[in-house]
Design a protein around this nucleic acid. Structure first.
Lengths: 247, 247
DNA sequence: TTCTACTCTCGAACCACGTTCGATAGTCGA
DNA sequence: TCGACTATCGAACGTGGTTCGAGAGTAGAA
């Protein structure tokens, strides 16, 4: 077997990816950074199914086999790609902290994470995958949320439960959203509003006697905003937490 | 193309799958029911990756192509399989309703759904997938939860948000759990406790100064129970909801 | 300079899987 | 007996993950 699994340090040879040296050369030169950036680009542009080793190699201007020098397989590629974008999310979230109320900081972290995931449906499914060595930022995010939760002065168990709950809620809601757009919405051939409206119409046609709830919320569903709905749910959860913290 | 997409009624020909008629016959005889049952069995026994059309056909004692008469492809197979198990979950949950407090009913539904998913990690990822024609039970579950929520007397928007939040939380936490066991735990070669303990040890070795939260909850993490933790989070969410409902 | 060792690239080849398609068996009603 | 329709079957195709061995490029030792 080859010798992958190296640390994420810079390569010794040439400068990473982008810079093109003077003399023309045949063989392409990559780096973990370049591989992950290209992978994320593919993912963002056309979704999870678009990320294939062949497409990735083509984008890097190299051969399929080369990618395997940096990652052991597709699982690790996805894990690292997910963690790669988390780097930016983590950095953005730093600036939002510093409220006097720890729950406000918790809310800021949750919202930041959620917003990042709404724009990247593929993220949802992968950022809680086995928080091992390949996903340090995931662990860092967990830690960061925990630090805010600790300020509530609750015992370890309740603090742990609270952070897990918030994280689970963020991931669940985000993953949920990410799975819905089938294909037409991604293409732009059908707008999101039309897509939602189509569902609303289908519900409208169902029997109101057996589906009273569906009809009760029909009009709200037709105009609902995912981000706003997430915030509403988060507020409920945080209200419960505040209650538990006795304040 | 063949003529799939038929209603889920019984076949006319022979009795479904199991029963072996008198005269020996060459060709196998299936049914949507048999296909879904076999699919769920494969999924339960060895996880999502074990469900292949060839494995499924072999289990049914037939050819690969036959399965395509009942489902249009793998996506629909998964959707229908997920909805198939939901039938049972839905039935079980019926018995648990009838509390005077609607929030207790809501809790019962959430817990039932969660418990069903913990035992079937593959479910988590699939039961919120495009609630279209292929997943009637999903919609029914949504409706069922909504009916309880309506009893709180909140306006449509808040009722809708509340149900979405609870469902998102259940799915997120369940999916989260389902992804963790890598392979060793499924084989039984490594017990769940050992698996958790291994993580705890890894955390213990990290710098307490940069990871204060990790160390704060370490001991709790080592002995935590997933079901119990889910309930704790659900309680927070429902407490927030009760607050919103005004008592 | 030459040799050697190590890092990294490359793409053909292999294999598993989803899916298609045409052939064909079984069954029912005319 | 003859269609027409329902179902089954498996060879074959295309795609995508993964392996492997051959080699290019570079750095340091001899």
């Amino acid at each position: 077997m080859p010798g992958p699994r190296r640390a994420a340090t810079a390569r010794p040879g040439r400068g990473p990816g982008a810079g093109a040296p003077a003399g023309g050369r045949r063989r392409a030169s990559h780096s973990l950074e370049a591989v992950l950036t290209a992978a994320v680009a593919l993912l963002d542009e056309a979704g999870e199914q678009a990320l294939t080793f062949r497409a990735l190699a083509a984008r890097l201007g190299g051969g399929v086999g080369s990618v395997y020098w940096y990652v052991s397989g597709k699982d690790e590629l996805l894990d690292r790609a997910a963690d790669h974008v988390l780097t930016g999310v983590l950095a953005d979230s730093e600036k939002l902290l510093g409220h006097e109320d720890p729950i406000e900081d918790l809310r800021a972290l949750a919202v930041t994470l959620f917003d990042a995931t709404v724009d990247r449906p593929w993220l949802g499914a992968y950022f809680m995958r086995s928080p091992g060595d390949e996903q340090p930022n995931q662990l860092l995010f967990f830690e960061r949320m925990g630090q805010q939760a600790m300020r509530l002065g609750l015992p370890p168990k309740q603090t742990f439960d609270a952070v897990s709950a918030v994280l689970g809620f963020v991931i669940g809601t985000a993953a949920d959203l990410g799975q819905q757009p089938p294909q037409e919405v991604l293409d732009g051939s059908v707008s999101r509003d039309d897509y939602v409206a189509r569902y609303a119409d289908a519900w409208r046609a169902m029997d109101p006697a057996t589906y009273p709830f569906l009809h009760f919320i029909l009009d709200e569903f037709a105009v609902h905003d995912d981000r706003e709905q997430f915030r509403a749910g988060l507020d409920l959860l945080l209200a419960g937490l505040r209650l538990q913290a006795g304040g």
